[in-house]
Every structure is written in structure tokens, then in C-alpha cells.
Amino acid sequence: MKKMTINGIVAQVEDYWTVLEACRFYGIDIPTLCHHEGLSPGGICRLCIVEIGKGKRAKLVTSCNYPVEDGLVVRTHSERVIRARKMLVELLLARCPGSKTLQDLAAKMGVQRVRFKVKNENCILCGLCVRMCAEQMDAKAISFAGHGINRRVTPPFDIKSDVCRNCGACMYICPVCQLRCQGPEPPNVVCGACMNVEPVCLQDNEDVMCYLDTCGWCFKVKPSSLKKSGYGKEKIEEG
């Protein structure tokens, strides 16, 4: 067993766990898009980032592949983490605005606008299907091709692979393309029709209980802190 600190709580964790597993064991919600328990960590979507270390040496790491270690101090929802996650969701949403998964994530995290040009792609290149095919189905019928902005998932040479058994596992595991957002098509890309929760905020107290889910404590007690960061701005203005 190893001993580490997650959001101020001393946690006993198994030696072989990743930080993500440890956090989830303690009931802390960390969003992921490219992670699946049955597959190797991808480290692609970067949404599972957490902040480790202190002061100047504090840095963001992806929890899905960061091994636990003794004395590790982890903050799963610090201001720096939230800011980065929101930007990542904004980038992904600009790429695939038609995905309900992404729209829900945006709503949950309080992403209220997309400042980039919309691309209307279907795939976020998380690689779950590629890993599923290779690791669980033992087929390797699809893979990544191209690099940079031309990266895409495809069978070798873009022709149907002989080793593909039409098992559908790639479709089953896809976090994005299956569920389409049926909401309105708003001008600013963010649908927001399913928006149902208040965003978390921890900029004043990094160890507060918000990580379990949104508790609204800070919203009730200190609306000014929300205003400062821009979270839930409209609500405050209305109220």
C-alpha cells in the first residue's frame, strides 16, 4: 500500500494503481474520454489531468497513466486544472459539436462558449477503438494513419481489413460518434439544452468537497468568487 494525499485527504492506495484509479476509488469524479478500464492508458484526451507537487514545482499530469507514489500530493479540481479542462473541452467541442458526450461534458464543466471556428468532424481521435481492436479483439484491423492534423483512424491502406470480424467493438466503445446531440443548433456551438448542474469552483479553497459532485456551497456562501473566475456568470447576474 502507498500513502498519498488527494485533495487534502490522506489516501491509502494499492501499489500498482494509477492516480486515476486511486481518485475514482475515493469517489472523485475525473472526466475522461480516451480511458477505459480494460485498455492500456492512452494519454490522448488529457482531460484527466490533475495537479501534483507544490508551489513553483506544481505541474499538471495525466492521472490515467501516472503511477501512484508515496507522499504524492494530488489536487483533482484546482483552478489550474479546471481552466485547462475547460479549454480542452472547448477545443474538442469546436471539432465535434454534434457529439452529445461532449455537449454534456461542456454543460457539466460550465463551458459556455466556443471561440474557435467549428469543424463538424465526427471523431476526436481518442484511439479507444484502435486499442480495443488491438488489445481486446486481438485483430489490429484499424489504426491511426497520417500525422498532425491529418491523423485519422482507418484500416491499413484505407481498404477493409481481412482481419476485421465485424465485431462492432470499435463502435461500441466510441465515446463520441454514437450519441448525437439532438438539441438545438445554437449560434455559439454550445447546445446547453441538457445543462443541469452548477460548475465546481475551488479557487478559494482547494480542499473543499466539491470534487464529489457539485455541492453549491461556494455558490451560496461566496458568489463573488464565482464572478471572479467567470463560472456561472449569467446565473449570478440574473440572481
Binding site: G43, I44, C45, R46, M87, L88, L91, L92, A94, R95, F116, K117, I124, L125, F144, G146, H147, G148, I149, N150, R151
Partner: peptide, 21 residues
């Protein structure tokens, strides 16, 4: 860098393209 990014992770692939835009 847009040309040379491997395209694996979101911030580099998407971020650089948006930056270029």
C-alpha cells in the same frame, strides 16, 4: 509545428491548428 505535430494529444493537435487559424 502544425506540420510536425504527431497529432496524438488534443492540446497540441487541436491547439496548434487553432493558434495557426
Amino acid at each position: 509545428l502544425v506540420d510536425e505535430s504527431c497529432g496524438r494529444c488534443v492540446p497540441c493537435r487541436e491547439g496548434l491548428e487553432r493558434m495557426s487559424e
